[in-house]
Structures are given as C-alpha cells and as structure tokens.
Write a protein that binds this DNA or RNA. Structure first.
Lengths: 136, 136
DNA sequence: TTCTCTGCAAACGCTTTGCACGGAT
DNA sequence: ATCCGTGCAAAGCGTTTGCAGAGAA
C-alpha cells in the first residue's frame, strides 16, 4: 500500500484509493490477473468498484510503464506489475502462470538484425512441475 | 500449392481447395496475417470464401500443428505457418512483424525450474530498421 | 445415404466509448 | 467554476456457435 502510493507519485499519477488498491493487488498477488480477477477480488473491499475503472487504471499503468500486459493463454489479456526481466511459463493443464527467471538472456543475445529492441517477452508453454508430479 | 497439399495429406487433413489456399497463403506470404487479412486477400480469388471457414481452417491447422497463433500487437491474433524456431519482432511505429533468427537460444537455456517446456515464444518490441532509417 | 466441408446469421464476451455525476481544488 | 476520477450503459468488434445446404464418398 505504502509502496504503491509512492510508485504512483513517482510516475506523476495521483494516488487515488482505487489506483493504489489496484497497483497493490498487482504487486502483492503475482498471479498475472485478468481484469476480471482484479475486479472480482477488489470488489469485496470496494463494492462500488466498476470494471471500467479497472480498465482505465490499467491503461494508465501501462502508459506510465508501471505495468505490462501479456497474452499467455488463448487471447486472454493478463497484467503484471513491471519488475525485473523474467519469462512466463503457462501450464496447459492447470493454466497457472509461473514467473521463470532468465538465465542471463537479454535482448542483446538475440540477433536483432538492425532493429532497436525496447522490450522482450518470453512465453513458455508446457506442463508445470505440479501437474507433472500428479502424473498427468 | 503443391507443397501445401502434401503437408495437409501428411497430417491427415483432406486437402480441400480452401484449406490448400489458406495454407499456401501462410507459407508464401510471411506477414503473420490476421484472419481478416487472410480473408480479405483470398476473397479476391475465392469470392464465396467466408470468415468462418478461415477460422475453422486455422483451428484445424493449429490442432494438427501446421500453424501457430501469436499475439504480437495489442490483442490481435496472428497466424504463422509452423517452421523452424524463430522470434518475432514487432515494430511499434509501422506495426510490421519481422521474423528474427535466434542465436542458438533454445528452451534448455532457460531455467525451466522443473516444468516441462513444450513451446517457447519470444516476442520483441521496438523500432524496426526501416523506421529508424526514416529518422522516426 | 452418410459424412464432410462450407457459410450465413446469431450469439458471445471482452474491451472501449460516451456521457454524466460527484468530489476535490 | 473547473478539473479529475469514477461508473453505468451502450456500442464495438473479433471470435465462436448453431444450423442448414452443398458436395464428396
């Protein structure tokens, strides 16, 4: 909460109650939530919250580089608070999304063929550790 | 055309006129087209073509591992004939999508932390060579 | 006949837009 | 009075579904 408020101030976004809550949600839970998930969970605390506000707020966060959107499963937009570089692993059984550390792979390692690379997203798919051990 | 027909046969998909045309389109043009683009362009040759057929056909291709879907720009689904591993570079100015060769980076290089990795998609974003030279 | 392929039209679901109310400055 | 944040309701748009007709086997 404190941290979220500060982050917003640093980016020149006025830290309204809703915005702080939404950012805090992204920072605490690291579930790469959809708009629906954010809305459903925060509605418990903020019954008046609307989806429009969640959409508006996430749009601001992305513009100001506080969050990123990612498409992990089939055309489902998910959101992630911008932290350090990492890849995402999507399990095709349980559909959970895991953060995966990169073993020192950065943009420079990829032949960019003259393009100026500003962002790099790596999406892995397969069966997660959990589902494997359950013998699926 | 020949090649597309063979590929379909090899995968046990009966090579109907529409299917061959759609696969040939993916193989020839490498524009990572959207459904809309495929539909618009093939309609010239096949005036009776419907979008539903394009959707149906691409779904079959993906099931049979002949094509892949990718989300490069903002929630736009694009399609790519399955070839060798490569990354995609999206230009945020002209929105073109380039294929980028990987410098020997494969799934194994990424710490998969116990998950079984079956697919790896790398999406780069930035300004392309072309737009850079135009001084944007 | 039976099964497959195709395509229209409707339904669906996520996201965006328009607009108006309320609170803060 | 003005500006900003919020939220309802409607519109928008890409995708999916249901169903029926055409064509191949």
């Amino acid at each position: 909460m404190q941290r979220a408020t500060e982050m917003l101030r640093n980016k020149g976004i006025s830290p309204s109650y809703h915005r702080v809550k939404i950012l805090a949600y992204l920072l605490e839970k690291k579930t790469h939530p959809t708009v629906e998930e954010i809305y459903r969970n925060l509605s418990k605390e903020i019954p008046t919250l609307s989806k429009t506000t969640v959409y508006n707020t996430l749009k601001i966060f992305i513009d100001k580089d506080i969050a990123k959107s990612l498409v992990a499963g089939k055309n489902e937009i998910r959101y992630d608070a911008t932290t350090r570089e990492h890849a995402h692993f999507t399990c095709s059984k349980c559909h959970r999304i895991y953060d995966v550390e990169l073993a020192g792979i950065l943009e420079e390692d990829i032949l960019s063929e003259g393009h100026k690379v500003e962002d790099c997203q790596i999406i892995l798919k397969g069966i997660c550790k959990n589902c494997l051990s359950k013998g699926n």
